[in-house]
Design a protein around this nucleic acid. Structure first.
Lengths: 159, 159
DNA sequence: CGGGCGGGCGTTACGTTATAGCGTATCTGT
DNA sequence: ACAGATACGCTATAACGTAACGCCCGCCCG
C-alpha cells in the first residue's frame, strides 16, 4: 500500500472538478459525463492509475465502457491539461496546477510507494530550451521523469 | 521513411560490436550470440526499434525466437549500458557512448522523421539533483525525453 | 571423473496497454 | 428543421510485456 497515497478530502475534489468545468466552459470544451467521471476517478485515486483500472472503476460506476471509452476521455483530459500521462508507468495523474496555462511536466516517481510528485523547475526547462535551440530543434513537449525513492520511503528503509 | 535514419557504415558497426564485446569481457558478462545479434540489429536500425520489430528480424536471421528471447537480450544490453530504452516510444536505441560509465540519458525525439538524438547536458543533471535533494528524494534513474521537430524536418517544412 | 549449481535459452500461455474502423446518437449553429 | 461536427457504442485486433517451467551446457569443487 503506497504510503503517500491519500485521497483528497471530498471538498477539495469537488472544488477541483468545479474548476475543471469552469476551465472547459471558458474554452468551449465539453466536459461530458464520461470525461468528468474519468477525471473524478483519476483525482480520487490520488496516485497514478492505468487506463484499464480506470475502465474497471468506470464500469463499476456506470455499468458501461470499453477501452476506447476511457482512452477517448483520457485524450480529451490530456488535451485540456487537466491530467498528465506518466510515461514510465503508462498511467495518468491529475494535474496539480490549475490548467490555465500549459506547463512543462516533471515528476519524481517513488519506486517503493508508487507515488508521483509533480514539480516544475525553471532551470530544467531553461536547460532543455538551450540544448534544443543550439541544434535547431523545435520543442513540442518535454518529459522529465525521475525514478528513485521518496523521502518517506527512504526514512522507513533506513529507520 | 525517416530522413535522418542512416545505417552506420559497416566498419563502424563492426567496431562498435568489437568494443561491446571487449566491455563485456572486461566485466565477465557474456555477450552470447543472441545478445550480440540483437545489439547488432539495434545498431543497424539507426533509429529506435521496438522489441517485436527486433524479434521479426531475429527470426529472419536465425529462424528462431519468441518474445522472451528478445526481452531477455534487451534486459542484458540495458544492464550493460550498451543500449537505452526510449520510454516515449517503447523502443530501443544503441548508446552513443562507450559504455564504460553509466550516464544520465537525454533524448531529442523528432516527431516527423522518428529519429532520436542522444545528448548529455550537465545542467539538466544538476537541476534534477538539486530538486531531488531538496525534497530528500534519492535518484535512481532520470528520464529526459524532449519531443518536437528536428532541424532538418523543420527546414523541410519551412522550405 | 561426476555431481551439483547457475546461467542462458526454448516454449507455452497469458496479462497489459492501445488503436482502427464503423455506425449511431446527440449537440450546435443557422 | 437541417447540416455539420462532435461524442460515443461496439467489435476486433494490434502492440507491448511477463510468468512459469524445463532443458542444456559450462563451470567449479570435491
Amino acid at each position: 500500500m503506497p504510503a503517500l497515497a491519500h485521497h483528497a478530502p471530498a471538498a477539495e475534489l469537488a472544488d477541483r472538478l468545479t474548476r475543471a468545468e469552469a476551465a472547459c466552459a471558458q474554452r468551449g470544451a465539453r466536459l461530458t459525463d464520461i470525461r468528468r467521471t474519468v477525471l473524478e476517478l483519476i483525482l480520487q485515486a490520488g496516485e497514478p492509475i492505468g487506463a484499464y483500472a480506470l475502465l474497471d472503476r468506470l464500469k463499476d460506476k456506470s455499468g458501461q465502457g470499453k477501452p476506447p471509452t476511457v482512452y477517448r476521455a483520457l485524450d480529451f483530459l490530456l488535451a485540456q491539461g487537466l491530467i498528465h500521462r506518466v510515461e514510465r508507468l503508462n498511467a495518468f495523474v491529475g494535474c496539480h496546477e490549475e490548467a490555465d496555462h500549459p506547463h512543462p511536466v516533471q515528476f519524481l516517481i517513488c519506486g517503493e510507494c508508487g507515488n508521483v510528485a509533480e514539480f516544475e523547475d525553471q532551470a530544467i526547462g531553461t536547460a532543455v530550451a538551450t540544448i534544443a535551440s543550439r541544434s535547431g530543434f523545435v520543442v513540442k513537449r518535454s518529459i522529465v521523469e525521475v525514478e528513485g525513492v521518496c523521502a518517506e520511503c527512504a526514512t522507513l528503509a533506513a529507520g
